[in-house]
Design a binder for these strands. Structure first.
Lengths: 340, 340
DNA sequence: TTGAAAGCGTTACCAT
DNA sequence: ATGGTAACGCTTTCAA
């Protein structure tokens, strides 16, 4: 079905051969000049002719052809799980990309939406990345990892709740977040602790381990824990607040500061005194927590710096045989303000 | 799993030739089978042998080689400007990627951090994308666009404040946001309007046009407009609030709902009555605005759906000669609550 | 039904 | 100091 030939958009894409022809030299010479190959010496007049020809044609080398020839690339693939991550994680992500660039890697975020597990791994493998940094549980199985490595990936790094065989892992143990909150609430005298569980999809990765952490801390002290599913909207929060007293909770961990704000407002409107009747703790230490009245107690999370992860990637690429590293990505500590 | 040849120095990546060898057929046959080429009929036993061989070797086709041969790809490049965009835009982005995938495009977010203008365009052009969707003012100049088109890009779409020569444009006219806020404040009787300008880098793209919009609406009515630089932190907000009365402002547009919350808290702590002494208007209609007391008036923004943009991309790719389209991406309307 | 071979744009080796 | 040429992995005529 060629109703219009490839050159329809004017001229066809210039190649190094075109540059060579225009400059009156061979393709090899063009390559030498444009790549500043040190091993060969090209006369200055020739260099200029080549450069001018390239400029005139608007020549840009073809990355695919280059890496095909080279047999490898410096592409780091970051499959993006499409979860609405907060400012904390997107900040980390930016830092990471920036650091990888400085190490001369090409960072490509690949949108593998709608693919399942090994199917996704296949799609990534087709791009022949030198490394894969998988955030969240982006459906990476051991066999997927194996596939990627066979396709030439020198390192697979997972950033998520657990380590996967054959990968380096930056473990984000979200249970520590819940544990910090739970321990604090118990210490403040709470005996019945609610835990807000966002109903928005994609957040289970964070919310479930956080709940587990609260459980671990609270139940050890003999307190009970009640999960509280909640959508991030005003009305569901009001409904929850309306039946608050019958729940009989004297403390609540609200998943993060935003949900804490939502819940606090609803509780206050319902006449629940904070922290006297119910203590509230959020997480992530966002600015908005300090703006609430009473000021919001929260769990502060120290993330590893993107720079560090970038260096791990680089190390792993340079030495693919090295034993998988495993590092804790975050440390949690409670920040007590007025709401607990 | 079965055999692990002792290529310890790095077992090589299996190619279609390896598959062909193992299956006892030619490379052509492998290609036919794995791509389900309709034009050729291959016997069922052969098909099975090929499939099994591919499976056993863990063969995955090489995307670069494929598109090199084909002369084109279905890669849509989205250079990511590293601005901390809010939930509104990241939601739009997700939707867009999802829609493009459904149209069988491979969406690649390329992290072009630290590159300038035409240098960035060159880097993008090396990937030979079929289309480029540039968000924000990711430094795309007319000559950059020309470069991309010469490199085979069939469509360049900008999503940002202004149209660039040779591109389809989804114009996000942020002045309408400011205009809506300004008109509302004036109508409420304000004569001296402050406009919060975030000092965080990368937000000028939104904040400056919004300021212009307020100016246009307010000054036409004879009101004065005062820009108020502000960092998103508690202390600067308190300092601003401390000198609020000398500023003599009776209304303020706070850039967005988050900055509005920050400012409102500082003003309330300083004893300024809202809206009696100063009316406050935010933007983006975030949930948190409804949680404030007084409830926050805001500018609601109707974004175009990602689906629509995806269809525009597809149309543009199919018919690169078509005249550039230009569409308004958003419509703004004031939502009056209690803070104004 | 299958195979041989050309060619996509690069770069590296080996001649000249 | 340059140029010829082969090869990277894949698809696709054309021929058998």
């Amino acid at each position: 079905m060629s109703q219009s030939p490839k050159q329809s958009a004017g001229r066809s894409v210039p190649t190094s051969a075109d540059v060579a022809r225009l400059a009156g030299v061979s393709r090899a010479t063009v390559s030498y000049v444009l790549n500043n190959t040190a091993a060969v010496r090209i006369s200055e007049p020739t260099r200029r002719r080549v450069r001018e020809a390239a400029e005139e044609l608007g020549y840009v080398p073809h990355a695919a052809a280059r890496s095909l020839r080279a047999g490898h690339s410096r592409m780091v693939l970051m499959p993006t799980a499409h979860v609405p991550i907060g400012p904390l994680y997107s900040g980390f992500l930016n830092e990471l990309q920036w650091a990888l660039r400085r190490l001369d890697y090409t960072v490509v975020q690949y949108a593998g939406v709608g693919l399942e597990a090994d199917e996704a791994a296949r799609a990534w493998a087709e791009l022949r990345p030198v490394a894969v940094v998988s955030l969240g549980r982006a459906g990476l199985t051991p066999s997927g990892v194996e596939l990627l490595k066979r396709a030439g990936a020198r390192a697979v790094i997972t950033v998520g709740p657990q380590q996967i065989a054959g990968t380096h892992a930056l473990v984000m143990d979200q249970t520590t977040v819940g544990r910090a909150a739970g321990a604090h609430l118990v210490e403040r005298g709470c005996r019945a602790v609610g835990v807000v569980m966002p109903e928005e999809p994609g957040l289970e990765m964070f919310s479930v381990p956080r709940l587990d952490g609260v459980r671990a801390a609270a139940e050890r002290a003999g307190a009970t824990v009640v999960p509280l599913p909640l959508r991030y909207e005003e009305e569901p929060a009001d409904r929850l607040a309306a039946r608050w007293r019958e729940l009989g909770l004297d403390g609540v961990f609200a998943y993060n500061d935003e949900y804490a704000m939502l819940l606090m407002r609803a509780l206050q409107d319902a006449g629940i005194a904070i922290p006297e009747e119910t203590a509230v703790v959020g997480s992530d230490d966002l600015v908005l927590g300090r703006l609430l009245r009473p000021r919001l107690s929260t769990v502060h999370i120290d993330m590893v710096r993107g720079q560090e992860l970038a260096e791990l990637v680089d190390r792993a690429v340079r030495d693919p045989e090295a034993a998988p590293e495993r590092r804790e990505l975050l440390a949690s500590r409670i920040v007590r303000r007025e709401s607990s």
